[in-house]
Computed example of a mutant assay.
Amino acid sequence: MKGFDYLQEQLDQMKDEGTFRELIPLESAQGSRVQIKGKEVIQLSSNNYLGLTSHPKLKLAAEQAIKEFGVGTGSVRTIAGTLKMHEEFEQKLAKFKHTEAALVFQSGFTTNQGVLSSILTDQDVVISDELNHASIIDGIRLTKAARKVYKHVNMESLEQALKETQNYRKRIVVTDGVFSMDGNIAPLPDIVMLSEKYDALIMVDDAHASGVLGNNGRGTVNHFGLDGRVHIQVGTLSKAVGVLGGYVASTQTLKDYLIHKGRPFLFSTSHPPAVTAACEAAVDVLLEEPSLIETLWENTKFFKDGLTKMGFDTGISETPITPILIGDDAKTLQFSDLLFDYGVFAQGIVFPTVPKGKARIRTIVTAEHTKEELAEALNAMERAGKELNII
Rank of each mutant, 00 (worst) to 15 (best):
V153N: 08
V125W: 09
S157W: 06
V149W: 11
L162T: 04
D124K: 07
S118D: 02
D122H: 08
G139N: 13
A145N: 09
I119P: 07
K151I: 14
Q123K: 09
R141C: 04
L142R: 15
E156F: 12
N167W: 04
H133E: 08
S128G: 05
A161W: 05
I140S: 03
S135F: 15
Q160Y: 08
S117Y: 12
L158F: 03
A161N: 06
E130C: 14
K151M: 11
Q123C: 00
I127G: 09
N132W: 07
K163E: 06
A146G: 01
S118E: 04
K144H: 12
S157C: 03
M155T: 12
T143F: 14
E164W: 09
K170T: 07
R169L: 11
V126Q: 15
K163H: 08
R147M: 13
K148Q: 14
R169Y: 10
A161G: 01
K170E: 05
S117P: 02
I137C: 11
R147K: 13
R141D: 07
L158D: 01
I172Y: 10
L158V: 04
V174W: 00
I172A: 01
I140V: 13
T121Q: 02
D129V: 11
K163G: 01
Y150H: 12
A161Y: 05
V125K: 09
I127C: 09
Q166L: 11
I172K: 03
I127F: 07
I140T: 09
K148Y: 13
Y168F: 15
N167Y: 00
A146W: 13
T175W: 00
